[in-house]
Computed example of a mutant assay.
Amino acid sequence: MADIRSRPPVMRLTEAAAARVRSLMERSDSKGAGLRVGIKNGGCAGMEYTMEFAEEAGRFDEVIEDKGARVLIDPKAILYLLGTEMDYKTDKMSAQFVFNNPNQTSACGCGESVAITPATSEAGLSGSASAGA
């Protein structure tokens, strides 16, 4: 019989990100399954992080439950988000989710779009990008 190995989560949340996700879900009109995070083509660097409320988990969504928050990872984004830490930062002028993604290779000057390479065994790059919320 083969040993079943537990695998690390695709993404982890800081306490600040988990608190913000919990707050957003509590205030949402829908008491859905969680906050879905994904990646789409766009922006000057080539890709953008996406976030939306999810009514239910998709068949192939990766479900992350961390610090009392539930985040669903779009299956098309899994390889791009492997090893990512999701944080939430506030300052005098803004409040936003920040993705510390080891697969990110560059970002545009405004920070709204990123270049991300799918994770491989050689992925060891570090980077971060933000998404307002």
Rank of each mutant, 00 (worst) to 15 (best):
D3K: 13
I4H: 09
S6H: 13
M11R: 05
R12L: 09
L13D: 01
T14D: 04
E15Y: 10
A16R: 13
A16V: 11
A16G: 08
A18G: 01
A19W: 00
R20F: 01
R22G: 10
S23H: 13
S23Q: 14
R27M: 02
R27D: 05
S28G: 02
D29V: 04
S30W: 04
G32Y: 00
G32F: 00
G34R: 04
V37R: 00
K40M: 14
K40C: 13
N41V: 13
N41F: 05
G42H: 03
G43Y: 01
C44H: 08
A45P: 09
A45I: 14
A45G: 10
M47D: 09
Y49W: 09
T50C: 11
F53K: 01
F53Q: 06
E56W: 11
A57E: 12
R59L: 14
D61H: 06
D61F: 03
E62C: 07
V63K: 13
I64L: 12
E65I: 14
E65N: 12
D66K: 03
G68L: 04
G68W: 05
V71P: 03
L72G: 08
P75G: 02
K76Q: 07
Y80H: 09
T84R: 03
T84Y: 03
E85L: 04
M86L: 15
M86I: 15
T90I: 11
D91N: 15
K92T: 09
K92W: 10
M93W: 08
S94E: 15
S94L: 12
A95H: 06
A95W: 03
Q96D: 10
Q96I: 07
F97V: 08
F99E: 02
F99Q: 01
N100E: 07
N101M: 09
N101G: 08
P102V: 05
N103L: 06
Q104L: 15
C108Q: 02
G109I: 09
S113L: 10
S113Q: 10
S113D: 12
V114N: 06
V114H: 07
I116A: 12
T117R: 12
P118H: 02
A119I: 07
A119G: 03
T120I: 03
T120R: 06
S121G: 13
E122V: 14
E122S: 12
E122N: 14
G124C: 10
G124V: 07
G124Q: 07
S126P: 01
G127E: 01
S128Y: 06
A129P: 00
A129N: 04
S130V: 05
A131I: 05
G132V: 14
